[in-house]
Amino acid sequence: MDQERLTATRTFALPAAQVFAVLADPAAHAAIDGTGWVREPVDQAPLTEAGQVFRMNMYHPNHPDGGYRTANKVDALDPPRTIAWLTGQEKDDGRLEFGGWFWRYDLVPLTPDTTEVTLTYDWSAVPPSIREYLSFPPFGPEHLPNSLRHLAEIAAAR
């Protein structure tokens, strides 16, 4: 971990395309996450291009409303090697606002049936106004390795 970024890496005994297909499916994100915060996708379409927005229903006991919705914008998409998104919210007027953190998965095929996957959570662009009421990272150090373990299990089952 550096000061404003966490990463975890795991080798999967699976082809990169099989792993990437799970990451590009918003319906799989709750099971990958494993915290119980990510619930179900509002937008079910597979992630296919940079700029695409997908919304997720969320829950956190410390959130003022408990349940809330994120709007995520695909920032990088290079199948089957990279997928990343910025997390934010949709305002009442439909405008999207992002908080300055992103999730990124980098997949490196080691063999046709083995892939190294690196998950990065980066909050380096979070402005001071958000840091006043949110602490980063908002989860413990085990979260990223657990997410990679969940991803491996889901991808192997498909």
Rank of each mutant, 00 (worst) to 15 (best):
L14T: 06
L14P: 12
L14F: 11
P15M: 09
P15I: 03
P15Q: 03
P15V: 08
A16Y: 04
A16K: 01
A17Y: 02
Q18W: 04
F20T: 02
F20H: 05
F20N: 03
F20C: 13
A21R: 05
A21T: 03
A21C: 09
L23D: 08
A24R: 00
A24S: 11
H29Q: 15
H29Y: 07
H29R: 07
A30H: 02
A30S: 11
A30Y: 02
A30P: 06
A31G: 11
A31S: 13
D33T: 02
D33G: 13
D33E: 04
T35C: 13
G36C: 09
G36M: 06
W37F: 15
W37N: 14
W37R: 14
V38C: 15
V38K: 05
R39V: 12
R39C: 13
R39H: 06
R39N: 09
R39F: 08
E40M: 08
E40H: 09
E40C: 11
E40F: 10
P41V: 11
P41M: 09
V42M: 12
V42W: 02
D43W: 01
D43T: 03
D43L: 09
Q44K: 03
A45S: 11
A45K: 01
A45C: 06
P46A: 15
L47R: 03
L47K: 00
L47W: 01
L47M: 10
T48W: 08
T48G: 14
E49N: 13
E49Q: 14
A50W: 01
A50G: 13
A50S: 13
A50Q: 04
G51Q: 02
G51Y: 02
V53R: 00
V53G: 11
V53A: 13
F54Q: 05
R55I: 10
R55M: 07
R55F: 08
M56L: 15
M56H: 03
N57T: 08
N57D: 14
M58F: 02
M58A: 09
Y59M: 11
Y59K: 04
Y59C: 07
Y59R: 12
